[in-house]
Amino acid sequence: MNEICAGRIVIVTGAGRGLGRAHALELARQGARVVVNDLGAGLDGAGRSTGPAHEVVEAIRAMGGEAVANGDDVADFGGARRLVQQAIDTFGGLDALVNNAGFLRDRMLVNTSEEEWDAVVRVHLKGHFAPLRHAAAYWRAESKAGRARRARVINTSSGAGLQGSLGQATYSAAKAGIAALTLVAAEELARYGVTVNALAPSARTRMTEGAFAEKMAVPDSGFDAMAPDNVSPVVAWLASEDSADVTGRVIEVEGGRICVEDGWRHGPAVDLGRRWAAADVGAAVRDLIRKSPAPEPVYGAG
């Protein structure tokens, strides 16, 4: 079988469980050498354990692959730097970064505390920025030295970040930020041969089973559309050299369905050619809204 990531060196964050674990295993099946990063924290981000990351490493080694564990906090700038350096020191470089780590502190907006907001934004948004920042610095240096790598970044957004989700204002805001970060990084890093894309995965994990219990139920028979490993082949392809012509995209994956998100686009407009009078704005905006498609409903809306 053709291993589309043969010899590639890949970091996967939050790889001890759920989607990250599935990604790490699939990448290894496709021939990648994997740095398995995971804090081993609980669903709410509390606690630490080296167990989950090491279990995934052992599973990869048992199938004949190469992997090492990393327990750094990806939202800590120094920890993210150490993570990237570990890949370079252990395997001799870095070809792809899969940003997947995250946790939930779901709450209706009026009940969300400052601590909950800061914690979720930190692990999701800063936890994407920090590893990406250090990986990008390495790839830029390699490119300037005449050793440009065919590098890839796969971020993890969410339908919550694209359409919104009731009770998940903080998570939705962080995931929307990741989608925007993906667009900017794709443009800035293209000169170094780096592509940057994001996934919006739907799968049964610790983070989703409470919010979407009915959808997450295992079917009695047939194809399990919500199994995490359904998403991972898309990750493996995006991490491969073959995906060089795809960048700046957000791709939704659920079961066997792949959807390229359309994202924010300029819609109908009107230019008065002079300063608007406040009393005239309402009619103009309502006319433009009538010419525009209705937004997709927020997840969980009645």
Rank of each mutant, 00 (worst) to 15 (best):
Met1Lys: 12
Asn2Phe: 10
Glu3Thr: 11
Ile4Gly: 05
Ile4His: 07
Gly16Lys: 08
Arg17Asp: 03
Leu19Thr: 12
His23Trp: 02
Leu25Met: 11
Glu26Trp: 02
Leu27Glu: 07
Ala32Lys: 08
Val34Leu: 06
Val35His: 09
Val35Phe: 03
Asn37Tyr: 00
Ala41Tyr: 05
Leu43Arg: 14
Ala46Val: 11
Pro52Ala: 13
Ala53Asn: 14
Ala53Lys: 08
Met63Ala: 15
Met63Trp: 00
Met63Thr: 14
Glu66Ile: 06
Val68Gly: 13
Ala69Met: 07
Asp72Gln: 15
Asp72Ile: 04
Ala75Trp: 01
Ala75Leu: 09
Ala75Thr: 07
Leu83Phe: 09
Thr90Gly: 11
Gly93Glu: 03
Gly93Gln: 08
Val98Pro: 04
Asn99Thr: 02
Leu109Ala: 14
Val110Leu: 15
Glu116Tyr: 10
Glu116Pro: 08
Asp118Phe: 05
Arg122Pro: 02
Arg122Gly: 05
Val123Glu: 12
Ala135Ile: 03
Ala135Val: 11
Ala135His: 06
Ala136Pro: 03
Arg140Ile: 06
Ala141Phe: 00
Ala141Pro: 01
Glu142Cys: 11
Ser143Thr: 10
Ala145Met: 05
Gly146Lys: 08
Arg147Tyr: 01
Thr156Asn: 12
Ser157Arg: 12
Leu162Gln: 15
Leu166Ile: 15
Gly167Ile: 07
Ala169Glu: 06
Thr170Leu: 06
Ala174Ile: 06
Ile178His: 05
Thr195Met: 01
Asn197Trp: 07
Ser202Gly: 09
Thr205Gln: 04
Met207Arg: 11
Ala211Glu: 04
Phe212Asp: 06
Ala213Tyr: 01
Glu214Pro: 00
Glu214Phe: 02
Lys215Thr: 04
Met216Glu: 10
Ala217Tyr: 02
Val218Pro: 00
Val218Leu: 02
Pro228Ile: 08
Asn230Val: 03
Pro233Cys: 09
Trp237Tyr: 14
Trp237Leu: 10
Ala239Ser: 15
Ser243Met: 02
Val253Gln: 12
Gly256Gln: 13
Val260Arg: 05
Gly263Tyr: 08
Ala269Met: 14
Val270His: 15
Arg275Gln: 07
Asp280Met: 01
Ala283Met: 05
Leu288Val: 11
Ile289Cys: 13
Lys291Leu: 05
Ala294Ile: 08
Gly300Thr: 07
